[in-house]
Design a protein around this nucleic acid. Structure first.
Lengths: 104, 104
DNA sequence: ACGGTCGGTAAGTCTTAACTTACGGTAAGT
DNA sequence: ACTTACCGTAAGTTAAGACTTACCGACCGT
């Protein structure tokens, strides 16, 4: 059920911006905060949520903390929507057939 | 930027349950509300958000209003995460090469 | 050892949004 | 025409969470 935390995490605009920024590669906390209209602690809190959701990893280098995209959480989201797509398609077909059986 | 509304919409647990229920096929508002721990107006409001996000369609039949999954919004989410995956992969490779160039 | 940078946590504020009840409007049945 | 079922909207309440400042510990330079 990690996709639940991931969806919750990506609902916030600031957090989404942080996550999308990390596509280009690892960034430190302060570096991320400099490009955002919120304080550094706010970014720290967002990163904690993203990490708990399995969307980012952290790697300490000296006093700095570099965050990067975690492929696992991302793959989970992709799988969730892929499965959703297939099941919705099956449900759609079944509904069409049922309707045909009624008044067809 | 419709995926933004879609992600916001799917962050709420109740709304996610509604959306996932619709995988099996179209359901009326009252039908959906009966299987949930919230009131019918609450479900109505959730459906409005889902519709605005492009995730569900509605089809009136008599006094009843049947909602079903909208493939367009779903496809947009899939595309978003697919693109995200590719760009993150490219960013990861670039970071690895840059690191190799520094201390390699 | 000391000053400076970096970053996580705590406490408190304030806005957002999920929910409730109440209401009105439409369609079907008798 | 009256009643009943179904549903959307309005108004108000309340709980969640995004943000701030203040604080503290960890690492590096001189």
């Amino acid at each position: 059920m990690a996709y639940v935390d991931a969806l919750t995490a990506l609902a916030d605009p600031t957090r989404r911006t942080v996550f999308e920024t990390l596509r280009a590669g690892p960034r430190s906390v302060g570096d991320l905060a400099r490009g955002l209209p919120v304080s550094r602690p706010a970014v720290s809190q967002h990163l904690r949520v993203l990490k708990h959701a399995g969307l980012v990893r952290e790697r300490r280098v000296g006093t700095r903390n570099f965050y990067s995209v975690d492929g696992e959480g991302l793959a989970e989201l992709r799988d969730y929507f892929d499965r959703f797509w297939e099941e919705a398609l099956a449900g759609f077909k079944e509904a069409a057939e049922r309707e045909e059986g009624e008044d067809g």
